[in-house]
């Protein structure tokens, strides 16, 4: 009885402190100026519909492209890294170490500018294409490590059972190990996806045209043309509108799958 009373008191005090802090901040802030710089309705209105039909669409599109490509590359690299063939292992290890170690910005820059100069080749799709190739390469390195850990997280007894039923190594991997590894990697892969959503903002370094702007580039350009920071706030909200529903969805999916485990 006394213990619950004390707990209730502590909780009450914490709430009071929290409310007081918020209130203090709210009072100290210059709301009129904030509104003028960050929440101009007419500036906001000007961004439509392009901020959705071009910027948000591109962010989603570029994320999906680099994630899909990165997934294929990552699974391939993970299988190489776990292969009994030494040169495969070696190649995968070097690749992963290099592209995880380099800043994504530098990789994009390298693919977009250095490769064409050095070898005279251009990535398909112009500068955005080059940037996307670079993002796929970076995502592949990260996803490879996630998938490798997932594969190794599947108990050895699983592949032993499959092999003793006569399944080949490839079938064992495909039908028994990978589906289970997939469940293990859902949380870290979601994380990687969210990181990619934001990394698409690095594509500007490869150069972007009016039609290839993603949210960050679009907002920044809108800030310089309008002289007002409202587009930044809108851009931020768009990112959250993409990432939060996604992570919620994955959480639901994960809870569903946990039931069969």
């Amino acid at each position: 009885m006394r213990r619950t009373t004390r707990r209730r008191l502590t909780r009450g005090a914490m709430y009071a402190l929290f409310v007081a802090a918020i209130g203090l901040i709210a009072m100290a802030a210059d709301w009129e100026r904030l509104r003028r710089v960050f929440f101009q309705l007419d500036v906001a209105r000007e961004q439509f519909p392009e901020i959705v039909t071009i910027a948000a669409k591109n962010t989603v599109l570029f994320t999906v492209i680099s994630f899909s490509g990165g997934l294929v590359l990552g699974v391939t690299l993970a299988l190489m890294k776990l292969s009994p063939v030494l040169p495969y292992r070696w190649l995968a290890t070097v690749y992963i170490e290099v592209f995880r170690g380099l800043p994504a910005l530098l990789t994009i820059f390298g693919i977009a500018y250095v490769l064409p100069i050095a070898f005279g080749v251009r990535a398909p799709g112009g500068s955005v294409g080059a940037g996307l190739v670079a993002l796929i390469m970076v995502a592949g390195a990260y996803i490879a490590e996630i998938v490798r850990a997932g594969i190794q997280g599947v108990p050895k007894g699983q592949s032993e059972a499959a092999r003793s039923l006569g399944m080949s190594p490839a079938r064992t991997m495909f039908f028994i190990v990978l589906p289970q590894a997939f469940r293990i990697v859902i949380p870290p892969i979601t994380n990687e996806f969210v990181l990619l959503v934001k990394d698409t903002s690095l594509l500007f370094i490869a150069g972007s045209t009016l039609l290839t702007k993603e949210i960050t580039t679009f907002s920044r350009d809108a800030v310089s043309t309008s002289g007002n920071a409202t587009p930044l706030v809108m851009g931020g909200m768009l990112y959250l509108l993409i990432t939060i529903p996604l992570t919620r969805l994955v959480a639901v999916l994960e809870r569903r799958m946990a039931k069969t485990r």
């Binding site: 007894g157 059972a161 092999r163 003793s164 039923l165 589906p179 485990r261």
Partner: peptide
């Protein structure tokens, strides 16, 4: 080897059913 194994059933201490 896969053909040979298909003719030999194996039962493990830890069952090793495929959970998925």
């Amino acid at each position: 080897l896969d053909k040979v194994r298909a003719r030999i059933g194996m039962v493990f201490q830890s069952f090793n059913l495929f959970p998925h």
